[in-house]
Simulated assay, not measured.
Amino acid sequence: MTSSNTSSAAPTPGSLSQAPAEKPSAPPINVLPSQLAQSYSLAHPVVLLGLCAWRFEAVVESTTRELLRDLPWLAALQFVYVITCLPPAGSSFGEVTPGPEDKKRASRSSTGSSAPVRPGKSSHRRKTSAKISWASVWARLMPASLAFGLTTLLATPAIAILLVLFGAPLTTHNVETFLCAAHMALLSSTPLIYVHGVDATVWKEVWGISRPADIVWGSALGTGLGAWFGAIPIPLDWDRTWQAFPITILTGAYIGYAMGGLLSRTPFVYGKRIQFAPGPADEDEKKTN
């Protein structure tokens, strides 16, 4: 009787239901290994902070006009930054087309025939290299264009709503709120969209603040934290013109962007995750102690 129950309870191959495997998390993003990318990735936050300091007095005098005037400059700097320093979505680190397979294919095509190379073949080689370079440029420009489009259509309205939820005026200063959101979206969302695309797993980690630290996530998180701390002087009764919304919020966002991106590249922070609660291993260790 016992053996019959055991045999009936045993799972059969046809009755097994395997749970879908969870998609692994995307690894931390590194700056491209070229000398230009490494150098400009360090100079870029300094340039942004210099632009913020240079335009600060003008923004205080005429906030709406100057924020609108500075927006194209910020977009241009971010565009140059992402295509120069970061790998686009769907590419492996440092391997933007042409990749190794393209190079092997090109070498086979150039050495596959035993016939001697004629002088007239040089123009064909130049055309091939030109095609490869144009393909490499297109592989960066297309994701960058999509990133800026999604930043404008999705990220900017979402950040504007978050600003209102966190205390920005709802019935007044609507233009200032939208311009502040546009600046913050270009700083934080554009690099994230460029390197991760619309990967749902990554964006769940972004909204859950559980991404491993890298230059992209660190800059985005620093932008949000900087804007949060930048709002502190607004309600204080210092009667300063620079306390008007959203001047201090944007100033904090720029400073947080620079500090977050630089700190996340250090060995002590890179690849680490923010933990709001102790994990199972930590809980077991506490129980044993």
Results as ranks from 00 to 15, higher is better:
83 I>R: 07
116 P>F: 11
12 T>K: 03
148 F>E: 04
148 F>N: 03
169 P>A: 02
205 E>Y: 08
225 L>Q: 08
262 L>R: 14
43 A>T: 14
212 P>V: 09
114 S>Y: 05
147 A>F: 01
154 L>H: 08
66 E>W: 00
220 A>S: 02
161 I>G: 04
76 A>F: 07
286 K>L: 12
106 A>Y: 09
124 H>C: 06
218 G>S: 05
155 A>F: 07
223 T>Y: 01
135 A>Q: 08
124 H>P: 05
283 E>Q: 13
184 M>G: 09
43 A>S: 12
146 L>Y: 09
280 P>Q: 08
107 S>P: 08
15 S>P: 00
40 Y>D: 04
20 P>M: 12
228 W>L: 07
92 S>V: 09
81 Y>L: 06
27 P>N: 11
286 K>R: 14
87 P>F: 09
164 V>D: 06
242 W>L: 05
229 F>N: 06
213 A>C: 12
48 L>E: 03
224 G>K: 06
153 L>Y: 11
198 V>E: 04
112 G>S: 14
43 A>I: 15
121 K>N: 11
49 L>D: 02
63 T>D: 03
269 V>N: 07
213 A>F: 11
126 R>T: 13
223 T>P: 00
242 W>F: 11
242 W>A: 10
130 A>Y: 14
231 A>F: 13
194 Y>N: 11
10 A>E: 11
102 D>T: 07
233 P>A: 12
214 D>W: 07
250 L>H: 05
91 S>D: 04
29 I>D: 02
71 L>P: 01
244 A>K: 15
103 K>P: 07
53 A>V: 01
209 I>M: 14
261 G>H: 01
88 P>D: 00
207 W>I: 10
55 R>E: 10
103 K>V: 15
34 S>H: 08
37 A>T: 08
136 S>T: 15
133 S>K: 11
263 L>G: 04
61 E>I: 11
143 P>S: 03
137 V>F: 09
87 P>N: 03
62 S>F: 10
282 D>E: 11
57 E>M: 01
260 G>I: 01
50 G>I: 02
54 W>F: 15
239 D>R: 09
108 R>W: 12
267 P>T: 10
79 F>D: 03
94 G>V: 06
260 G>C: 00
51 L>I: 02
115 A>G: 10
134 W>E: 05
122 S>V: 13
50 G>T: 08
149 G>L: 14
85 C>Q: 05
177 T>H: 03
109 S>T: 14
138 W>V: 14
161 I>C: 08
